[in-house]
Design a protein around this nucleic acid. Structure first.
Length: 271
DNA sequence: AGGGTGACCTGTCGGC
DNA sequence: TGCCGACAGGTCACCC
């Protein structure tokens, strides 16, 4: 479900409301991708200072330590003053003095992990090789273009790898490549500097636009207040195989790269 | 070290 | 109605 825009939309939807809250109780359900790595009860009494994002991770800074939350493929968070009993797919509850933060994750590829700090071994393992933040000033077009030159894989897979730039998942990789007019199968190293610059801008445009639209609610994504996003309504290629391109009316094609679906317009994306 | 593959887990949908 | 395969927004450990 969640790529950078969905994670950021989630963050924005509950960060102000949870800031300053005291942790009253922590409930862990079925196993997630990784164990919490601390005694849940040991978190009681700590304060949630703020919520940051790094790539597709949310970082809850506590008065001591950090909770890393990843939504995996199917995760979503809710934050509410009152919540019913946990459902079948609710696997983590953080009860605070200001509301209940709950992770709902049917496939359980998500995770909640406690670390003492960002220099914690576990934190480094999870966050250490993440690429640059695409919406930050540090996402430099020239560095990006030079980075692409070192990679022999198809550009779509280089974007998904997340070590050059973070946050671009399966939807927005296809969308950014469409905006840039680049074939998903093109070897990254063969992309010229001007076209790399265009892709750099396309990534920023697509992600920022998706955040503005509240993310993509393809199946079940909603923010921590339960509101859906609308970006999927204006996707140019993602999940549109067989439909006419919104720009040139050619038929949108689907192909598989690294066991993931890719969508593109054979006319608008030529090289 | 980059690149390719299978693995994790549950639900939904389309075809027979 | 039931069964079966394909597919779904991520990413890690493992091999070469």
């Amino acid at each position: 479900m969640p790529e950078l825009p969905e994670v950021e939309v989630t963050r924005l939807s509950f960060a102000p409301a949870i800031a300053g809250a005291n942790i009253l109780n922590v409930q862990v359900g079925k196993p997630l991708r990784w164990p919490l790595s601390c005694d849940p009860n040991s978190l009681n009494g700590r304060q949630v200072l703020r919520v940051r994002r790094r790539g597709k991770y949310l970082l809850l800074d506590l008065s001591q330590g950090i909770l890393l939350i990843h939504l995996g493929m199917s995760g979503s968070l809710t934050f509410a003053s009152h919540a019913p009993e946990p459902g079948k797919h609710d696997h983590f509850d953080l009860l605070t003095s200001q509301g209940l933060l709950r992770l709902h994750d049917p496939r359980r590829f998500g995770a909640v992990v406690y670390v003492e700090s960002e220099s914690d071994t576990l934190a480094i393992k999870l966050l250490g090789r993440l690429g640059v933040e695409p919406l930050a000033d540090s996402f430099d077009p020239l560095v990006f273009a030079l980075g692409l030159k070192k990679r022999q894989s198809p550009i779509k897979q280089v974007l998904l790898a997340g070590d050059l730039v973070v946050g671009v998942g399966n939807i927005y990789a296809s969308e950014a490549l469409f905006l840039a007019g680049i074939r998903p199968t093109t070897r990254a190293a063969r992309i010229s500097k001007p076209r790399a610059f265009k892709l750099h801008q396309a990534i920023r445009t697509v992600l920022a636009s998706a955040v503005e639209k509240g993310g993509s609610s393809l199946r079940d994504f909603s923010n921590a207040q339960g509101q859906n996003g609308y970006f999927q309504l204006e996707a140019n290629v993602y999940d549109r195989a067989g439909l006419p391109c919104r720009v040139c009316a050619s038929t949108i094609k689907r192909l598989v790269q690294g066991q993931r679906s890719t969508f593109f317009c054979p006319t608008c994306q030529t090289a």
